Simulated scan of single mutants.
Amino acid sequence: MTTRRALLVGAPTTLLAAPSAFAQALGEAGVSGGDLSALERLMAQTLKGELGDEALAHELAAHVADAGFRWGYPMFPVREADSVVAYSFGYRSATGKVNPDTGLTDGEEAPEPGPINAMLADAVQAIRRLRKVRVYAQWEIAQVLADRHGMKDVVPIYPAKGEDGRKTYLSTDGVARGVIAHAGTAQALGKVAVVGHRDHVKRCILVSRANGMAAAAAREVPLPVDYDPRSAQPWTRRRDAYLLSDVIAQLTMARARILSDLPG
């Protein structure tokens, strides 16, 4: 997951190569956009009237449409998967000693994976029953896979420690980088079946692809859309809060890309 702080600053600059790249990938995967093209044209027309700049209006409309209205994601048959990369969604704190801005505990307790990560572990297990693949999972999911499903050969991805010796929060991008560090290269993973919460998985795939993975979700395996009101991370307690957070994260990626293109 991405922390509230990371939603606002420090997002990777390569996550969106172009505003329409993900829409193109969805089209190639057979995901329909419905009336979104018409809505995007309407937004561009409105912005042109507001800004007096047709090219800029189309660019902003594309960013808003991609981040706020395209929630489908590319999929492939599970039989094509070579590996699984699973991204967690929130966790629980037994003591409630968490930083409200990051969801990190004070380091004195062992966080609990919680029910949503248990559902994500079930999705990983469902893929594994259909195809024997190597599994890389953020620690919350990896713990459930070991405890509930007896899956001992999972590669867990844990948070790193900062200079002060405390654990730093593991972002979505941090998980992807951790997986590649274990695998050696993104290419060594082969075709990656991404497992993530239904509202998070689009960005999980974007981030995975930005890190070089050939990533999509497994078509045959449904992903959880439930929310845990007791999650230690406030933005993962309710759907409206999370979706707004994810829209901000996607727009922040687009902003970072634009800033990176500016002359020094």
Rank of each mutant, 00 (worst) to 15 (best):
Q250R: 12
A18Y: 03
V155I: 13
P77H: 13
V225D: 15
L42F: 09
I141P: 08
I205M: 01
A218Q: 11
V154I: 14
V221Q: 12
S20W: 04
P263S: 14
V9L: 09
A217L: 03
F69C: 12
S231D: 05
G103F: 00
H63E: 15
E220L: 09
V144I: 12
R257A: 13
D147A: 09
D173S: 13
V195A: 09
M151F: 15
R128E: 13
A256F: 01
V144T: 11
T14N: 15
S245V: 04
G165T: 02
S32T: 12
W139H: 10
G162H: 00
G96W: 04
D122M: 05
K161S: 05
V175F: 08
W235D: 06
M151G: 04
Y87D: 01
A21F: 01
N117D: 14
A81R: 12
T102D: 10
P111S: 15
A29V: 04
V98E: 08
Y91E: 09
R230W: 04
I248A: 00
A214G: 03
G196L: 10
R129D: 13
G72A: 01
H197W: 12
P222H: 08
P74A: 08
T105N: 15
D226Q: 14
R257D: 06
V194F: 15
V64N: 01
G196K: 05
R177I: 05
G49K: 11
A193D: 09
S37E: 15
T2M: 10
E163M: 11
G27H: 01
S245T: 04
W235Q: 03
I180L: 07
A176H: 02
D66M: 14
L223A: 06
A86N: 01
D35R: 15
R203H: 02
E28C: 04
G103P: 05
V201G: 04
V135W: 07
A218M: 08
T172L: 02
P12K: 11
A216K: 03
A81W: 02
V84F: 09
A62V: 00
D226F: 10
Q233S: 05
L243P: 02
Y169H: 07
T236A: 06
K48G: 15
T46N: 14
E163A: 15
V247F: 10
L8D: 12
R230N: 13
V133M: 00
G90W: 07
P113A: 06
G165A: 00
L262I: 11
A44F: 09
V133W: 04
D101F: 13
A176F: 04
A65K: 04
A183M: 00
L243G: 02
Y227I: 01
A23N: 03
R239C: 02
G30H: 01
R5G: 06
R4T: 05
K152A: 12
Y242T: 08
A146G: 14
A188C: 02
A67R: 07
A118G: 06
E50G: 08
A142H: 07
A65N: 06
S245P: 01
A44C: 06
A126P: 07
R128G: 02
L223K: 01
A137G: 13
G103Q: 02
E54L: 09
L170I: 07
P222C: 05
P234F: 14
I205P: 10
T13M: 06
D66N: 03
L39S: 08
R79C: 14
A11W: 02
D153H: 05
P12T: 00
G27W: 00
A6D: 09
A57H: 02
V85H: 10
Y158D: 08
D153C: 05
A214Y: 11
